[in-house]
Structures are given as structure tokens and as C-alpha cells.
């Protein structure tokens, strides 16, 4: 029988700091020094104003469920035992959105605009930011 490993990110020049932050329990995002917008995912230049003056800041880890779906079919063979699971877009208090899972709840409980907070979880040797309802 084939053993499937769960998909994990491939850190690169843009993202290494972000994923390293996760492994230390910190949700690091970029902030533009010029237009003051927060940015996700990490980039070389600001997508708002093209500035290259970007700083890493630690996000509060708090946010809201912008939207979500309940996956009734696994997106990958390694996730079959996790079905049904929630995939959500989280809007952080800093104003950026990222995709994640909402864990440690009944999947039927989740609604748009619910408050969530980050919780870091291991996946195949890496650490991913996941979220819990608060």
C-alpha cells in the first residue's frame, strides 16, 4: 500500500522567513515602510506601491473567517482520513488574508466573520499556521 505524505510548503527566497517564523511560533508578515500596508504572501516589492522597503512584523494571530468551505472529498490522498475538514480564508486584524484550516471544532459550527486565533501545528516536519474559533 502506498503511504502518502501530506503536502508541505517549499520555502524559497520570498517565503523562508515566514516559514521559519512559524517553526518558532510566530506569524511573521511584511509591512510596507512607504504606504504602511501589511502584505501577504511575502514579496520582494509592495504590491500596493512597488516600494522595496518592506519590514517583517509579527502579526497578532487574531482575525476573522472571511470565507470557508467544508471539504467532503480529500484534495490529496494523504488527507482522506481528515475528511470532512475546513479550509478557510482568514482575514487577519492587520488586514491581510491567508488560507488555512480551522481545527479543533465541529465542521458544521463555522460561519463567515467568526473570530479566530492562530495555533501552530506540525505537518510532515514543518510547522503550519492553523486557526481555532475563539
Amino acid at each position: 500500500m502506498t503511504e502518502y505524505k501530506k503536502p508541505i510548503p517549499t520555502p524559497d527566497g520570498d517565503s523562508k522567513t515566514f516559514w521559519d517564523g512559524c517553526s518558532e511560533g510566530k506569524l511573521l508578515i511584511q509591512k510596507c515602510n512607504d504606504c504602511k500596508n501589511h502584505i501577504f504572501y511575502p514579496r520582494e516589492v509592495c504590491p500596493h506601491c512597488m516600494s522595496d522597503q518592506l519590514n517583517w512584523v509579527e502579526a497578532s494571530g487574531k482575525g476573522k473567517v472571511y470565507s470557508y468551505t467544508i471539504a467532503r472529498r480529500a484534495a490529496h490522498p494523504s488527507l482522506i482520513e481528515d475528511v470532512p475538514y475546513i479550509v478557510a480564508l482568514i482575514e487577519l486584524d492587520e488586514g491581510v488574508r491567508l488560507m488555512s484550516n480551522i481545527i479543533n471544532c465541529d465542521v458544521e459550527e463555522v460561519r463567515c466573520d467568526m473570530d479566530v486565533k492562530v495555533i501552530f501545528q506540525k505537518q510532515e516536519g514543518m510547522v503550519l499556521p492553523k486557526f481555532e474559533l475563539v
Partner: peptide, 30 residues
């Protein structure tokens, strides 16, 4: 793939392509 922008999606198991459209539907309903 889990490279480039896929690294921020694929590890979370979004069913492709239906999952993204499902999220849009939930937001519209909301």
C-alpha cells in the same frame, strides 16, 4: 504544486478547483 504561490494553499488541502468557488458561494450567501 507546493512551490511558489501554491505553497500557501496546497498544504491546507483546498479541493481544486471547486473549493475556491465554494468559498465565493459562502461569502455571497453571507
Amino acid at each position: 504544486p507546493t512551490t511558489l504561490t501554491g505553497q500557501y494553499e496546497t498544504p491546507f488541502g483546498l479541493p481544486n478547483p471547486v473549493g475556491a468557488y465554494a468559498m465565493a458561494a459562502h461569502r455571497h450567501m453571507h
